[in-house]
């Protein structure tokens, strides 16, 4: 019973942390959208992702996932699908990419500290993220 309770408390703590990040993130996103900045960023960052069938609206969730982690990128995707900015098909491609390549800063540092080489921690992940989501986009 205590194990279940500990798990529950851990989960609630996790949700509070997520909320403290996701709510401000969404507000910043609204402001960025209202001022036309996001459209600019998406336009410039979209190029490498166009080939795997991800439109400009899907780029921001990808960038967030790569920098901050899967949970936050997924939160944006959930929101984007709900508001119709991203199609279910696109969400699958984006989901594949971010499942492989996310939290690139945090994950890389953990193993860099233990002596694994930087390039091996980053390059295979990015290459396979593109390859797998390309395959998914063609199906």
């Amino acid at each position: 019973m205590t194990v279940l309770w500990e798990g529950f408390v851990q989960g609630v703590r996790g949700v509070i942390t997520i909320g403290l990040i996701v709510v401000p993130l969404m507000i910043v996103l609204e402001i960025a959208q209202g001022n036309g900045w996001l459209q600019k960023l998406n336009h410039y960052a979209a190029k490498p992702f166009r080939r795997i069938g991800v439109g400009e609206e899907g780029v921001f969730p990808l960038v967030v996932a790569m920098l901050f982690g899967l949970t936050y990128g997924s939160g944006l995707i959930i929101n984007h699908v709900r508001t119709g900015q991203v199609s279910a098909r696109e969400a699958k491609v984006i989901g594949t990419f971010m499942a492989i390549a996310h939290a690139l800063v945090e994950d890389t540092i953990i193993f860099l500290v233990l002596g694994a080489p930087l390039l091996l921690l980053l390059v295979p992940r990015l290459v396979l993220a593109f390859a797998m989501s390309y395959i998914v986009s063609k199906r």
Partner: peptide
């Protein structure tokens, strides 16, 4: 701010 906060809370609930 209102729209962002609402979207943020809804997403947090989904997660």
């Amino acid at each position: 701010i209102q729209r962002g906060a609402k979207a943020g809370l809804e997403t947090t609930w989904e997660l």
